[in-house]
Design a protein around this nucleic acid. Sequence first.
DNA 1: CCGTGTGAACAAATTCACAGCC
DNA 2: GGCTGTGAATTTGTTCACACGG
Lengths: 211, 211
Amino acid sequence: MTTLLGVPEVVIDRLPIYARALAMLEMQGRQVVSSQELGAELGVTPAQIRKDLSYFGRFGKQGRGYNVQRLAAELKGILGLDREWRMVLVGVGNLGRAILSYRGFAEEGFRIVAAFDRNADTIGETFDGVEVQSIANLPRFLKDNPVQVGIVAVSAAGAQEVVDTLVANGVRGILNYAPIALHVPPGTRAKDIEPVLALQSMTYYLKGATS
Amino acid sequence: MTTLLGVPEVVIDRLPIYARALAMLEMQGRQVVSSQELGAELGVTPAQIRKDLSYFGRFGKQGRGYNVQRLAAELKGILGLDREWRMVLVGVGNLGRAILSYRGFAEEGFRIVAAFDRNADTIGETFDGVEVQSIANLPRFLKDNPVQVGIVAVSAAGAQEVVDTLVANGVRGILNYAPIALHVPPGTRAKDIEPVLALQSMTYYLKGATS
DNA sequence: CCGTGTGAACAAATTCACAGCC
DNA sequence: GGCTGTGAATTTGTTCACACGG
């Protein structure tokens, strides 16, 4: 039981995985689950689940396990998933359009409220109900509208400048699809979505295999 | 200096980041770089870079640093990026189509050689030069063609079955876009691409912020 | 004098193992 | 008897600090 501010980031990164599994169990009508079962499902040790949860409280009952509905709700609360989050997308090329059409964000309460691009051909067009604005409008938009997360889907060359604009206008969460290491000030969170990097480390292990 | 088989996975996961930065420096015509500079660029300590590299050899020169071209080539060799990798895509919905149209894979030597879906309306259509086949063809295709990686872009409900088919037919690398924890046997590598999970842990830190 | 490579020191994360409660 | 919650033990990963070569 450490102070709330001191929860290791690896723990925080696992909580959404637990939350997702619990939501699934909840849908299946499951009432109770043990750390044993949850761990088997997720490929995690039961002790790790119990330890992770212990940072935030005592949610289980000895001899029984965890109430699925209760724990699911607790985790949502801890993570801040009991509210809607507003995001802007910057970069509406191929990748940006795919992001706009992806239903998974909205389903989990992450709403893309505006999209920006610098390409004159794209500005003014509408994709999945979002009209693309000039990137010149981005600072004003951020001043006038609450936005918590910026999705960066521009090229590596343009990404840092976009991030600087987002950060300068109060956006403290960045979801980065550009293939570059971003620089963000303390207090800002950036997460990289990098399928190519994932493949490039996987190949190390596949090298030795047949085929 | 540990045995090659014992390199920690976290180290392997960082190598592609180094490789990418070095490729960039190389394009800029840079000859030499120190762990200091590289670390500043990537937000990593110089000691960590040196330690990571020391698992594989001695690539630097005291007092000088690393030859950019040489180190870039070494890392590519270590990771197995000096060859082409063949992948199949399973699931050609919205997400699958976005993956097919993504140029980033091919640019780094990862080629999607076939795509499969179970939806009769989609089978036979062509996206970005790849014709969609019935998922019933998947086992035969894998027997007849060398494929190292399977990209899973089906729903959570269908993902495990797809993975089982891939694994049963010799695919040892899985790039998973489905929002579920997969079960794979030892010797198989699975990596999850999960933008929603990334957002859901980010919100923990954003909760307290203004706006 | 600069920067690598690396044991040694340290810090972080995971797992163990068991007391306590249902 | 079953399973949580948690200190203690262990393992894993990171950083230090310096001998050595250029």
